[in-house]
Nucleic acid binder design. Sequence first.
RNA 1: GGGCCCGUAGCUCAGCUUGGAUAGAGCAUCGGCCUUCUAAGCCGGGGGUCCCGGGUUCGAAUCCCGGCGGGCCCGCCA
Length: 626
Amino acid sequence: MGLKRLITEAEKLLRTVGIEEPSVQVNKDPSFGEISSTAAFQLAKSLGKSPVIIAEEIASKIDVSGSELISSVEAVNGYVNFRANWVGYSRTILEEIFMGGERYGSSGVGAGRRVIIEHTSVNPNKALHVGHARNVCLGDTLARLYKFLGYDVLVLNYIDDSGTQMADVILGFMELGYSLEPPPGMGFDEYCGDVVYVEAVKRAESDPELAEKRRQITREIESRSGKAFELNRMIVSRVLKDQLRTCWRLGARYDVLNMESDILTYGLWDEVFEKLKAAGAVYYAESGPKAGCWLLDLSGHPVLSKEGDEVLIKSDGTTTYIARDIAYAAWKLGASSKDFSYEVFGENPDGSRIYVTSGRGDVRIPVSSAVKVINVIDVRQRRPQEIVKYALKLLGLDAEKYIHYGYEVVALSRKDAERLGYSPEPGQRIIHMSGRRGLYIKVNQLLDMLRERAAKEVRERHPDWSDEKVLETGEKIAVAALRYALVKQDTDKMIVVDTDEIMRLEGDTGPYLQYTYARALRILEKADSELSTSPPAEPSEPEKNLLRRMAYLPILLEEFHSSMLIKPIADYAYTLASEFNIFYEKVPVLRAEGGERAFRLAIVKAFTIVFSIVLDLLGVPRLEVM
RNA sequence: GGGCCCGUAGCUCAGCUUGGAUAGAGCAUCGGCCUUCUAAGCCGGGGGUCCCGGGUUCGAAUCCCGGCGGGCCCGCCA
């Protein structure tokens, strides 16, 4: 392919003059040529000569006459710079894009291999807030990327339907007299989280009687029968449906919902526990502060050992969540003889089915073949995730497959926290969201605000559009703005949500990407003439810059394959859009004629192909008109 | 106390994995560009001890060591 061929040719030329390991790089500043080599610097010491002289010797010895894509070699300050033959290089790039079509840039490395990605995993007692949205967007983008690389991707969503947070909500309904129907205009998930849960937590904190009732409810849920259990089941299902609607709004999709309560009944833990015992990885504490507990022996771990062993079975005989996590993780790696059965829960907007664990169901979904098991969870879970991974290693499993895809949390700006009724401390710059205290910005709320803001802009530009069309477009803009904002930040940096900032629709934003795409389509729409991948002459700088950027996609995706970083994809989308906009301003297409027009149309066409791919990977909805 | 992460322009951040040519964007600010493919755009100006100090190297924002500042994690909760 284009860029790779250029690199290969440069390396080949360097070998012809005796450089065994030609280190070449794609230049950041193309005024030095497309490719350059620092071989002269590396040879300087052993040859006892200055790199400047060595570079000149190398350059003078290289004969480019046999090279298809390289037109010249020159030595500058010790660098050996290779320039491309742009007439041929342009054609190579464009032909590769047209040939690849919607698969351009995919190496297909994942063919026949499965990746499991678990994301979202929000407790089913509340509506999603912006912190959850970061998880959903990262997870879904990973899924899209792996799918594009040819992998068979299985998306899981873990539903903790038996934790104490559920008991809080049940307490609200059973003891505080809350109706099962939310007030008009409010979703059931919001109602449970914003009203019932927050109030129940508050009341139980100050009322020991209610706290005791909550313990009873917890036990009843665990017993898997009775009124609280039935009520819980119904609430989980209703909240989950609302939550999924929000996730779909963000463009995410799921294959499997794994309910924690079902997992417990399958006896996964018992099997794993026996294996841990057999491996000598756990022990029973006879005395000391943890007397009566079964603990995971962490003494062999260089870091974890410093903080003491981990309780897996409490002295009352119940498991800790980390024990359940270990069992679940072992299942994901295919190390369990037990397997869940599923029934259909619903359908994704794309028509694919979503399965949920069920005692009644008869569907089986084998997971054993996965080459990677990715868990999208925020950084606060780093230590527990490391413990799970270590336990897998002690079980003799291939723990390297188990990947905690961590990301920093989303917090509130001072201003937004104040808007939500919180009084920050004097020097406090960020405020962490809290479900228990009702301190958070909900995804739907933010998307609605964004949609409204975008719709206003759309209306101004298209006064003739129907309200329906305006809102539909506004919704896509809102999703683009939010998804892009959550994914363009590096995962190891906290995002401080500033609603004023996020409402911005210009600059380095999702809507900018959509606008750029719509602009490109306008040109193609008005063009009826032929395309040509051959430039009539040396292309102009804006044309070259755009071509260069498009040529980079295959390498970008290769880099993703090894780094798993999503951010560079977002950066690429922005710079590609930016190069297109410069091209758009400086290089007339429809007003050009003949071969020039045909070549430029080919560039625009190629751009829409490449850019569509990138937008789809990021989950930024494409807009034909904006 | 121990562990992990972050520190680059007024603000929000790229670049660091794999060291390389004048350190890049966006926002904000100041100034230009719409009878010509959508101005949600483009062009230009101002704005930097790349937290500090050592070290490695021909070459360090990037690698190593030591500080400083901020965040997170260290429950028989999940």
